[in-house]
Amino acid sequence: MTKKGVKYWVVDAFTDSAFKGNPAAVCLLEKEEDSKDEKWMQSIASEFNISETCYLTPIPNITTIPRFHLRWFTPLTEVILYFNIADTSQISAALGGGVSITDIKRTQIGGDLLVVVTSGTSVTELQPQVDAIVKCPGRGIIVSAIAPPGSGFDFYSRFFCPKTGINEDPVTGSAHCALALYWSNKLGKSDFNAYQASPRGGVLNVHLDEQNQRVLLRGKAVTVMEGCLLV
């Protein structure tokens, strides 16, 4: 397939000087069908023969701010920007084994892995293997599932992040930004009552504001200490 009139730019990234930094070719495609012609995209990337060639396809009717689908190619192959769910055995083992995983996503926040399991009970009963989690892709692992019937919650979650020195975070605001979007797509709603099933536990009221691309988190708080730093 021949693409006519495809605009492109060569950008030197991560520098304020020309001919330095990381060179990348940026090609603007008009429609999603063009982005499916992988042979053509790879041929163009080989012709440019620089570190990266990317292809942007506009996402229509999302927000007033232009947004794009993105694919990257080196001169030899495509650079995969998402986690391959073919590694579910590694993730399952890191979570203690015997865990039935139904979905894996890589979040835009910290590159965490969002791992969805079959039940809220599975979330609470996880026996994470910290040494194995460290070897997994991403910053950390968010585990989530639909909450048990009658619990009063929409979904359960836990968050493991030993790479940052936190084996298990008690309650994680950033994780719920990703969880809000995921469960909104699955459940068709924007407001959630969520429970983070860590040993300490935590309850969050979550609202996904799609119009303004924001997630609002609400919850109660108790002051347990008061003091003064002297230095």
Rank of each mutant, 00 (worst) to 15 (best):
T88H: 11
L81C: 14
V6Q: 04
S100C: 10
G111M: 11
C136T: 13
V130T: 15
A18F: 12
S190Q: 08
K186Y: 07
E33I: 07
T15G: 09
S89Y: 09
E210S: 07
K3M: 14
K36D: 14
W9V: 14
M225E: 03
L28F: 15
P199A: 07
G219V: 12
E168C: 08
L230G: 00
D131V: 01
R218S: 13
P162Y: 10
K7V: 03
V134I: 15
P66M: 04
W183E: 04
F83N: 14
T124G: 01
T2F: 06
D154G: 01
T223L: 13
P162K: 03
L187C: 05
V115M: 05
L28D: 11
L187R: 06
H176E: 02
R106A: 09
V115K: 00
K3F: 14
D34A: 15
C27M: 14
V11F: 14
S174F: 12
K4D: 07
L76G: 11
D37V: 10
V117P: 07
S35Q: 14
V134M: 14
I166N: 13
G219D: 01
L229G: 14
K163S: 02
L179V: 02
Y82E: 15
V99Q: 11
D37G: 06
C54R: 08
G98Y: 10
T64A: 11
F155Y: 15
Y156R: 08
D209R: 01
G152F: 01
V115D: 06
T15F: 03
R139K: 09
D112T: 05
Q211Y: 09
E210R: 09
K31L: 09
I104T: 10
K135Y: 03
Y156D: 12
R158P: 11
F73K: 08
V79Q: 12
G201P: 03
A178H: 10
W40E: 12
G96F: 01
V79T: 11
I65D: 04
S17D: 11
V123H: 06
A147H: 02
V10T: 04
G110V: 13
K220S: 11
I44N: 04
C54P: 00
V134Y: 13
V224P: 09
Q108H: 07
N49I: 02
V99H: 12
Y55A: 00
A132K: 15
S46V: 13
S89F: 11
K135V: 07
L76P: 03
D12C: 09
Q42M: 15
G138N: 05
T102V: 12
D169Y: 07
L95V: 03
P149V: 05
I109E: 09
